[in-house]
């Protein structure tokens, strides 16, 4: 479907635009990928719920014409858990940034993965708190400058995809804003996979991160994404030396585990057979 038609079909095009993001921001690329994925999956948008927390990326749902819920900072997954568990027929997709998902909401992230409730979390990772003015986040690289690390960041970053993988997510995919088409594919895989699926999108905040770290434009930062990202299939054939300073993209984890909602249906049947105490 041509872009204009997609926009008219899936976005609140006559209500909410222009959007809040800076020119060159990667969030719009993720939004584009999301509506292309919706279109490919031929979703009934009345059954889609987009949930977010607080931050630049969490403003994404308001632009989409479906059920949209903009919650408190870090807590989007908890609201999404309630929605999905109360009405499992809904497709619940959660949009978070790196600060939202891994700092204030870090506990909810690992527990949603461990619980394996059937949600899709799209984590837009730009390594910084953009909306509040560029303070360092749990994914800001060691040594990087931020509004609260003027002398260089002395904390070590989370690798979000590895974190959710060890926490139990059944699906983990990673892409970059540069590899836009790959995002569509990963979103579809994550949504269609029963259980907790995560799509991490490495993106750029040239406004708050780039200008403090010698890459002041979106183009420069996207070039870095192109250089550093290696498809997982290709990475398997590369040596550790060749992979130094690079990160993998593609489908990183895809496994089958019992998921919360279907297990709970079983619990309901078991509970029925038990008599009063």
């Amino acid at each position: 479907m041509p872009y204009t038609e997609l926009i008219h079909k899936y976005l609140r095009h006559n209500k909410k635009f222009p959007h809040v993001w800076c020119p060159g921001c990667g969030n719009g690329i993720v939004l584009g990928a999301l509506i292309r994925a919706f279109d490919k999956m031929n979703f009934d948008m009345e059954k889609v719920v987009l949930v977010s927390g607080i931050g630049c990326s969490s403003r994404l749902p308001v632009y989409v014409d479906c059920n949209t819920l903009h919650t408190t900072h870090g807590r989007a997954l908890t609201f999404a858990t309630g929605i999905k568990f109360a009405k499992p027929e809904l497709n619940v997709i959660v949009i978070m940034g790196d600060g939202d998902a891994t700092a204030i909401g870090g506990n909810h992230l690992i527990h949603a993965a461990r619980r394996n409730i059937d949600l899709t979390a799209i984590i837009i990772n730009n390594n910084i708190y953009g909306m509040t003015g560029g303070q360092y986040s749990p994914t800001t690289p060691f040594g990087a400058k931020a509004a609260t690390s003027a002398y260089g960041n002395i904390e070590h970053p989370f690798n979000i995809s590895e974190l959710v993988a060890v926490a139990g997510a059944t699906y983990v995919g990673r892409s970059t804003a540069f590899h836009a088409k790959l995002i569509d594919k990963l979103i579809i895989q994550a949504v269609e996979k029963p259980g907790f699926g995560v799509v991490e999108v490495i993106t750029h905040c040239h406004t708050q991160y780039g200008r403090r770290n010698n890459t002041p434009t979106a183009v420069e930062m996207m070039k870095l994404q192109q250089e550093k990202a290696v498809l997982i299939e290709k990475a398997k054939k590369m040596s550790p030396d060749e992979l130094k300073g690079k990160f993998t993209i593609g489908t990183l984890v895809d496994r089958n585990l019992p998921n919360y909602c279907s297990e709970y249906s079983r619990i309901r049947r078991v509970a029925l057979t038990k008599t009063d105490k």
Binding site: V49, V51, L69, T71, T72, R75, L77, T78, F79, A80, T81, G82, I83, K84, F85, A86, K87, L90, N107, H108, H111, Y260, Y264
Partner: peptide, 25 residues
Amino acid sequence: SFIQMEDEIASMGAITGASLAGAKS
């Protein structure tokens, strides 16, 4: 539906989400 959450912040989020999906929570 019963769910034991990871903390009380999450519990409050979950009952709000469930109510938005029609439950009495």
